[in-house]
Amino acid sequence: MTQRKGKKLVYVNSNLVDSVAKASHERGETISKFFEDALTHAIKVASMGCDLKEFGQFFEVLYAQRILGGAFVPLDVLNFLTTVTFKHSRGALSDVWFDSGVWHGKYLKERFVDPVLSLEVFLTASRWDLSEVEVKRFGDVTRVRCVSTVLSEEASQVLSRFVEGIMHSFGYKLQKNDVMKGMIILEFSV
């Protein structure tokens, strides 16, 4: 690496440089300016505690939520809504969560090359009340496991229906369902 008047040279993959040069040209910026801006944002991303690959996945999720009509709701309110509606309209509540899952699933299926793997990122990025999310394939079986220390029994039940709806959109059938307070283990096969 050569050093010159407060500037440094850095090696970059040649193909990527060409693509980025094209992007900077389209935006009417020099590649040097574009590169320095990108470095500044890489520092901001690191300050958010994630690496660039994770950031790219999170951004895809946020983008998907905007497209799908995502909205924020206070977690306490969501817990309240779940408890009340679970008590009074359990069947209808289960249906709306399943339908919402189907809706999300259709979008993920169109958008991602491997929608099943995208589910893990999707849940991790949008459901931060979950402390652990794992989507794994074992031969023909795909297992989805979610763990949370704050999820109530009712919230676990409706979230499992949401995941079922998503997997249903991907063409999977539920084989095993083990849901309890703060723990969801679902197994699917094609």
Binding site: A71, P74, L81, V84, L93
Partner: peptide
């Protein structure tokens, strides 16, 4: 303390909860 989800789903749940227990829903919010 906010969670992100489908707007339509929140509205469906809000409508159900409001119908089931209006005063408790208002207090919760």
């Amino acid at each position: 303390g906010f969670i992100l989800g489908l707007e339509r789903l929140w509205y469906d749940m809000v409508d159900m909860a409001y119908m089931a227990d209006k005063s408790a829903s208002l207090k919760s919010w």
